[in-house]
Design a protein around this nucleic acid. Structure first.
Lengths: 314, 314
DNA sequence: TTTTGTATTATCGATACATATAAATCACTT
DNA sequence: AAGTGATTTATATGTATCGATAATACAAAA
C-alpha cells in the first residue's frame, strides 16, 4: 500500500466537493426524502431542515444545491427548493455520497482491530502509515474513538485501544454488565418512559417480529437492538448509565465487523418478543416485571450450550 | 488579555520546567515517597518506576532530577537516586508542582459552568479568550471532557456541555450510578473477595476510623475511599464494572478540586464504619447484607437534609 | 411577516516548520 | 548480569498562517 502523499482519490473516494458536515447532512437527508416526507413538487424548506439538524442554513443549502445538480430537487428563483423526484435508492448512497474520511478510517480501524491486524496499542504515525491517510484524519478519528470509549491516550506516547469482545470471557462479562446496568436503570426512581419513543420502539420491534427473516439486514437488526437498549436506559435520566450502554454498543458494533452474525430465525423472534414484553411492562409501569424480563433476556445460559461459541445473539 | 505569544509564566503558572507528563509523574511519585515506600538512604530505581507507570525512563529521571534539586533525593554517579528526606507535605504539592495546564483549565471550566459564568454552548475561541490559554490546551481539555461524557462537539461549530454539569444533578446521578454498579458487582455470581486485599482494606479503614480528624488529609481520605470502592468492585471479576468505577473515581477526583470537600467528623466516621461493615459482611459471605449496606451508603438522602448542598461526603 | 438569496464575519481545519520530549539504544559502571 | 547514564531516534507539541466553511446578518422577494 502506498503510504506517502496519498490523496483520497487514490482510494476511490470522490467527495464530490462536499465537506464532512455536508456529507453527513446529505446522508441524513436522502433517506428522509426517500421515505416520502415531501410529495413531488412540494417545497423543501432549508431553514426548517437547518433547525431540525441543529446547524446553520449554509451547509443545508449546499447539500440541496448538490441534490439539485443530480436532479433530485429543483431550485427556483426566490421560491426555494422543491422535490423533483426521490433520490436514487439507498444502496447507491455510498457511491453518490461516499462516507467521510473519518467514517472510513473509523471502520477500517475497527475492522483491523477486530481481526487482530493491529495490536492494542499504536502511535498516530503507525496508523497514519498503515492506512495511508493524513495525520488530521487519524487524529480526528482517534478523538472520536476516544469519545466512544474505544481508545484512549496513553501517558507519554501513543494510543491504547479498548480490548474487543473477542473472547468468551469478555462477552460474558459484557452481558453481565449490561444486565446490571439495564435492570438498575429500569428500577431507578428517576426512570420515566417517553410515550412517543416507546411507541416508536414498539412499532420497530413489531416490524422485526413479523418481517420475513430474509428481508432483515444484519446491521439493521443490530442497530434496532442497540437503539432499543439505549433508549430504555435513557429513560433512567442518568447520563452515566446511558454512557455505559453507548460504550457497550460501540464495543459490540466493533465485534460485529469481525463476525457476520448470521441471524437465526429463533433468535431474532425471541429477542423481538422479549423486547415487546419489556416495553409492555414499562408501559403499564410494572418495572419489576420489566427488569425481570430484561435480566433473563440478558442472561446467557451458563453452559453456553444453545449459543454458537463467540456468536452474539442480541 | 494578551492572546498572542502568551507563556505559562504570564498566568502565574510556573511549571518549574516540567512537562505535563512529568508533572503527572511528580504528583504521583511524591505521595508514594511520603507514604514511606523507601527508607531514607534507600535507592529509588528509575527503571522500576517507569515500568510501574507504564512509560519510559526519560520522564521519570527528569522528575527525579527535579526532586534532587529540591533536596528530596540525591543522585550519585553510577549509583542512581537515593532518598534523602521525604518531600514537603502534600499541601505544598500544588505550589511545588502546579497542576498541568489541562488540569487547570478543566477545573476552571467546571467551575465556570457550575456558576453559570459560561453557557451550555461555547466555541473554542470563546474559551480560549475567556480563560486566556492556548488553542491546544483548550482543544485537549475539551477532548478530555468529551471522553468523560461532559462535553460533546456540536455538528458544525462549537461544543455543547453536558446538560447540567451544574454539580447537584451530576453528583446525584453519579451516586445512583455507583449504587447500581457496586451493588450489582457484589451480587454477581463471579464475585470472589481476595482475603489479603480485604484485610488491607480493613486495616486502612480502621485507621481512618480511629485517627484524629485533624491528621487526616483530604486527598488521603479521598484516595482511601476510591481504593475501597474500586477494590470491592474488582472482586466481581468483571472488567466493565471495574472500568466504570475507575472512570467514576477519576471524575470525582477532578470535581473534588472544584468544591473543597471539608471533612466533617461525623461524615468521616460514618463512612469508615460503613466500609468496615461492608467488608465484614463480605468476609462472612453475606453478600445480600453487603449490598444493602452499600446501597444505603451510596444513597443520598432524598431531601439532602443532612448534607451540605453540593458537598461531597464520600 | 415570513421566507429566500446573498454578503459578511467568525470559526475551524489543514499545513508546515521549529521545538520539546518521550522512547529506544548503547556503552559503561557496579 | 543488572542497573545507570548518555546518546540517538521517534514522536508529539506549539505556533503561525492560510484557506475552507459554517454561522450570522442583511436585503429582497413572496
Amino acid at each position: 500500500m502506498n503510504t506517502k502523499g496519498a490523496t483520497p482519490e487514490q482510494y476511490g473516494l470522490d467527495t464530490g466537493g462536499l465537506s464532512s458536515l455536508q456529507i453527513e447532512v446529505a446522508r441524513k437527508l436522502m433517506p428522509i426524502i426517500s421515505t416520502g416526507r415531501w410529495a413531488v413538487g412540494e417545497k423543501i424548506s432549508d431553514a426548517a431542515l437547518a433547525r431540525e439538524f441543529g446547524i446553520s442554513r449554509t451547509p443545508v443549502r449546499q447539500v440541496l444545491q448538490f441534490l439539485a445538480e443530480i436532479g433530485t430537487v429543483a431550485q427556483t428563483d426566490n421560491r426555494g427548493f422543491t422535490l423533483v423526484r426521490p433520490p436514487p435508492v439507498d444502496e447507491n448512497v455510498d457511491e453518490l455520497v461516499p462516507p467521510s474520511e473519518v467514517d472510513t478510517l473509523y471502520r477500517q480501524i475497527m475492522h483491523a482491530r477486530a481481526n487482530g491486524l493491529i495490536g492494542s496499542e499504536a502511535s498516530e504515525t503507525e496508523l497514519l502509515e498503515y492506512f495511508g491517510t493524513s495525520r488530521g484524519t487519524v487524529r480526528r478519528t482517534l478523538i472520536r474513538l476516544s469519545a466512544e470509549g474505544l481508545a484512549e491516550r496513553r501517558d507519554g506516547h501513543g494510543w491504547r485501544f479498548a480490548e474487543c469482545l473477542d473472547n468468551r470471557q469478555a462477552v460474558n462479562e459484557s452481558y453481565a454488565f449490561r444486565a446490571i446496568i439495564e435492570c438498575g436503570a429500569v428500577m431507578e426512581d428517576t426512570f420515566c418512559a417517553d410515550p412517543e419513543a416507546l411507541e416508536a420502539l414498539e412499532r420497530e420491534q413489531t416490524a422485526l417480529l413479523n418481517a420475513p427473516l430474509a428481508s432483515i439486514e444484519g446491521s439493521a437488526w443490530f442497530e434496532a437492538n442497540a437503539r432499543f437498549h439505549e433508549t430504555v436506559v435513557s429513560w433512567s435520566n442518568n447520563r452515566f448509565l446511558v454512557q455505559s450502554i453507548r460504550r457497550q454498543n460501540s464495543l459490540r458494533r466493533m465485534t460485529e465487523y469481525a463476525e457476520f452474525a448470521e441471524l437465526s430465525e429463533a433468535g431474532v423472534r425471541k429477542a423481538a418478543r422479549d423486547h415487546l414484553a419489556i416495553l409492555e411492562a414499562i408501559n403499564t409501569d410494572d418495572r419489576k416485571l420489566a427488569s425481570a424480563i430484561l435480566f433473563r433476556h440478558l442472561s446467557r445460559s451458563p453452559a453456553g450450550a444453545a449459543v454458537t461459541p463467540g456468536r452474539i445473539e442480541d
